[in-house]
Write a protein that binds this DNA or RNA. Structure first.
Length: 957
RNA sequence: GCACGGGUACCCAAGCGGUCAAAGGGGCAGGGUUUAGGACCCUGUGGCUUAGUGCCUUCCCAGGUUCGAAUCCUGGCCCGUGCACCA
């Protein structure tokens, strides 16, 4: 049977809309099920990657409808931030690449591009008019979205809500102001993300500690280090004698460092000034007070100091920095150099390595050890870089501070590092400095720097109490799949304060700083709550939505009469909104992609925890995997995409939905392979056609009486029920792939077997199967299911108003009997193949005699296979004992397969086989006979004695 | 570097202590049906054997636990994803 897929889709989509099937209202008697999926950024065309995320959500939603729940699935459009603006600007400039993308990939008619030149029009067009856009896609795929609640993140009411959200966070003390280092483009005067770069993607920055060495004249020579804990091993400073260093006024102090350092420091410290210069050579030989150890150490010349890194001055720790050690050796050997700078040879030769860190790998002078091992010759040796990394890694992870480190003695290095740094900074002996790890160039061509932003606002995710409470929320949530729970926990630990304002983009203005908008990740964390009232709140002008109004709706705070009067909002409306929120919340599932666990998903849990009472926090998350196309990442700009509109055109919405679920579970990475899908579609189509045919033929039949079923019919009934049982189990765990397989390809196999076994068409049985099948299929393939349900089976109401079948108990003996026939059938087939006969004359089956079953019964009591024990136990049965030696092979066979046979109950094999006589005769086109081993009237080759439980002996001719 | 996940036959992928030479696809080979092409159905797909069997070598590598390991433990190698102002 064939379907006109497109016609069916149109028909039922219209019907669902007309009957408001997916527009739920508060029904106190029904359990609420609210599922929410991260709303999309409506920029561009919808492809199968997006479709997968939303299809999973829709299937879970529809499944819960079929469980009898009141289901809410809303949808909105996230348009905050810069992408819309960037696209509009690019179109404005008629950027050829962008124009091409919009016309060729997004299929937007060239004349329409004119409409897209303001953000408002752009958003409206993308949402409502774009044929390849998301909304069009959602509708085409038959999603059960309640469109009354549709929203955009720039709606005035929504903005009011976001404002309220931040005020709540502020009240709890989770909004704070501080300093923050960012990668910054001095030309554009704005922070830069990876996508804004010409060069240097993924390059981060490191936090250096600036150590301040006081000279006799009060100035500070400043050295930058990544290893503040090694101050205890300092022996001297290194600098480049030929370089001219800057004297920098920092507050009341004067610092000495390279000119490059000054340029970078300007971005990180306010009000600093270069007030002079001094040549490196002038500093050589001077004594300075080393921080941390409060000892005077000399400034010495070296060849390795790079003015572009740090301050161009390096503190020397020869025990743990290979290059320091080598430079020291070089200097000690170079009498000329010592003389040239007028240094005391005695002093230079007197410098000794001070051990400070101990590891198993390198002892207590790691640098000395590794220089020896690698045979490093001088400070120009290329092996130094590797040596440094090696020593650093080992020291940091495994090292322990030794007795030369004062109160830090005995402490692991990775701990001491932070503490030493903190202490030096507190004592005013050190400062921090950020340095990019590599070259970073902005799109505008300017080289980027690290800037420390003053007055930056943060959300304090680092707050230990907040973390703890959020973890508690997490504990009570179901995470699908469970295996991501540890990741959530780790993310919670790792989260630090997050800057929450930006200067560019669409969004809500930050309440405490004019001209700044709330960072776009921050306006999409508790909006699920807003959806519960978004259809009602549209009726209210935004300026009426004061803090008290939202307090009442979402927290139940305040006096309704007063709020109604003061804000000019009808009391009934307020009450209705409060009750919507109360009914739908907490959210059952928040659905999003795995890569959003470290931000969106975690922020959402944190903010729910901060703002809502415990019973209104989230109940669960579903975390979805990526989708790739033929093993490659999809990319609109490269044209490597499959668009939903095209695909629905090709194979139909239901098949798109099904095959997005069919190959892996939702959280796994999925590879979309068009060729394999094509094959699958045609198989599935014919299977569904078959079922539809059965539906038509059996729709008027009487009710099934299961207890009267026999043989293969009883088997099919039970087999179908066990498929449904498994289907339900999988659905509960959101294992949509396994669930889908149970009711499609696996069920198809069952039917295939039944078709060669059946003696007649049992209409009531077919009706039972088709009806229940359609209900299970409906979440996956709603249109076809509705068509079969209403049109072919003649039901009046939508299939989504029906209830799924209950789980049923399975009679294992019925399954066993059929399994027995199947094995006998396969055995006979095998024999026929091996002896190579075209056609058999006669086939004879001999079933095992009673005593062999007795062996099984006895040894089943054994916990595990054990031949000796098996013999002993089996021989306690008289019927076995009297067989003597002949029993041994039987015992061995059953013992070897004990695990398998433990599940096997005794059935009347002879009767079962006889019931399938016609089947065997038909399949092999020969006469077939059955005997019990003991009453084998015909046994020319003495095969009968080889019969075993569940494995009849066979004779053929 | 840190965090999380993963390595299974030609490819994708199930299995997660015995019923495992290892489900299901795809590919490939042979056969059937049809035939312009396709579509469809069956059989085979580690090796050697065989009246439905038995044996050998396999589930990244190396050790270990166990009567028994693809499955559990330890160590190593390799791969994927995320790492914050980007939605």
């Amino acid at each position: 049977m064939d379907f006109d897929l497109k016609a069916i889709e149109r028909k039922w989509q219209k019907e669902w809309q007309d009957s408001c099937l997916f527009e739920p209202f508060v029904e106190k008697k029904k359990e609420a099920f609210y599922i929410q999926v991260a709303y999309p950024y409506p920029s561009g065309a919808m492809h199968i990657g997006h479709a997968r995320t939303y299809t999973v959500t829709d299937i879970v939603a529809k499944y819960n409808m079929l469980k009898g729940k009141n289901v809410l699935m809303p949808m909105g459009w996230h348009v905050s931030g810069t992408p819309v603006i960037a696209s509009v600007e690019a179109l404005e400039k008629n950027d050829p690449k962008t124009v091409k993308k919009f016309t060729e990939i997004f299929h937007i008619p060239a004349k329409d591009l004119e409409e897209l030149k303001t953000p408002e029009f752009y958003v409206d067009y993308m949402v409502n008019k774009a044929e390849y856009g998301y909304k069009a896609g959602f509708k085409r795929l038959g999603f059960g979205i309640d469109w009354r609640r549709e929203l955009k993140t720039i709606d005035p009411q929504y903005k009011k809500f976001i404002e309220w959200q931040y005020k709540k966070l502020y009240e709890k003390g989770f909004i704070r102001k501080g300093k923050y280092p960012v990668r910054y483009c001095p030309h554009d005067d704005s922070p830069v993300g990876d996508h804004d770069l010409l060069e240097g993607e993924g390059v981060g920055f490191q936090e250096f500690t600036l150590l301040k060495f006081k000279m006799d004249n009060g100035q500070f020579v400043v050295a930058a280090t990544l290893r503040p804990e090694t101050v205890f091993g300092q022996t001297n400073l290194w600098l480049a004698p030929k370089v001219e260093y800057a004297i920098i006024k920092v507050g009341d102090e004067e610092w000495i460092g390279s000119n490059e350092f000054f340029e970078k420091l300007k971005e990180q410290k306010k009000g600093i000034e270069k007030i002079g210069t001094i040549k490196g050579s002038e500093l050589v030989g001077k004594m300075v007070l080393a921080p941390g150890i409060e000892r005077k150490i000399p400034i010495l010349p070296s060849f390795f100091c790079d003015t572009g890194t740090g301050t161009g001055i390096v503190t020397s720790v020869p025990s743990d920095a290979p290059i320091d050690y080598v430079a020291l050796l070089d200097l000690q050997k170079d009498k000329d150099l010592i003389k040239k700078f007028g240094l005391s040879e005695k002093m230079i030769l007197g410098i000794k390595v001070i051990p400070i860190i101990k590891t198993k790998e390198f002892g207590d002078k790691a640098a000395v050890e590794i220089v020896k091992r690698l045979g490093i010759k001088n400070q120009f040796d290329s092996k130094l870089e590797g040596a440094k990394k090696e020593v650093y890694k080992t020291g940091f992870h495994k090292g322990v501070m030794n007795e030369n480190c004062g109160k830090f003695a005995g402490m692991p290095v990775n701990k001491a590092k932070e503490l030493v740094k903190k202490e030096l900074i507190e004592q005013g002996k050190a400062d921090v400095f950020f340095e990019l790890e590599g070259k970073v160039v902005c799109r505008c061509g300017t080289e980027c720097v690290v800037r420390v932003l003053e007055d930056q606002w943060f959300v304090s995710y680092s707050d230990p109490k907040w973390k703890e409470q959020s973890k508690k929320t997490l504990e009570g949530m179901s995470i699908v799949p469970e295996l991501f729970r540890t990741q959530y926990n780790n993310v919670f630990d790792w989260l630090e304060d997050k800057p929450c304002t930006r200067s560019k983009g669409l969004g809500t203005e930050f309440p405490w700083q004019k001209g700044k908008i709330i960072e776009p990740l921050g306006d999409s964390t508790i909006y699920m709550a807003y959806f519960t009232v978004s259809h009602l709140i549209k009726r209210i002008e935004a300026q009426k939505l004061s803090e008290e109004v939202f307090d009442f709706i979402f927290l139940g705070k305040g006096n309704i009469e007063k709020i109604s009067k003061e804000n000019g909002i009808e009391k009934e409306l307020l009450e209705e909104m409060r009750s919507e929120f109360n009914y739908w919340y907490p959210l059952a599932f928040n659905v999003s992609a795995i890569e959003l666990i470290p931000n969106h998903m975690s922020f959402s849990i944190f903010q729910h925890t901060a703002i809502f009472p415990p019973e209104k926090r989230q109940l669960g998350t579903i975390n979805l995997g990526m989708l790739v196309l033929e093993g490659k990442k999809m990319s609109s700009s490269k044209g490597n995409v499959v668009l939903i509109n095209d695909l629905c055109e090709q194979i139909g919405a239901d098949f798109v939905r099904f095959f997005l679920m069919n190959s892996v579970e939702p959280w796994e990475e999925m590879d979309w392979k068009p060729k394999e899908i094509e094959k699958g579609v045609s198989k599935l189509k014919s299977f569904i056609g078959e079922i539809a045919q059965l539906a038509v033929e059996s729709k008027d039949s009487e009710k099934l009486e299961p207890e009267k079923l026999q043989g293969e019919e009883a088997w099919l009934y039970h087999r179908f029920n066990s498929r449904v049982n498994a289907f339900i189990d999988h659905m509960e765990r959101i294992e949509l792939r396994s669930a889908a397989q149970q009711i499609s390809f696996l069920l198809a196999k069952d039917l295939q077997w039944f078709n060669i076994r059946k003696k007649r068409d049992n209409k009531p049985l077919y009706l039972y199967i088709t009806k229940n099948f359609v209900k299970c299929l409906a979440p996956f393939m709603p249109h076809i299911s509705e068509e079969i349900w209403r049109n072919l089976l003649g039901n009046k109401r939508s299939v989504f108003l029906e209830k799924l079948p209950e789980k049923k108990e399975i009679d294992c003996k019925i399954e066993l009997a059929e399994e027995f026939i199947k094995r006998a059938f396969l055995d006979l087939k095998e024999i026929k193949k091996i002896i190579g006969k075209e056609k058999l004359q006669k086939a004879v089956f001999y079933t095992a005699s009673e005593w062999k079953w007795n062996v099984l019964k006895k040894i089943k009591k054994l916990e595990r296979p054990d031949f000796k024990e098996a013999i002993k136990t089996a021989m306690t049965d008289l019927s076995v004992k009297e067989k003597g030696k002949a029993a041994i092979p039987v015992i061995k066979f059953l013992n070897d397969r004990l695990i398998e046979f433990k599940e096997i109950e005794k059935i009347n094999e002879l009767k079962v086989l006889e019931s399938a006589k016609e089947f065997f005769e038909k399949e092999f086109n020969c006469s077939v006979f059955f005997f019990n081993e003991e009453k084998a009237e015909f046994d020319p080759q003495k095969k009968a004695s080889k019969a075993l439980p569940f494995k009849p002996a066979i004779y053929v001719e």
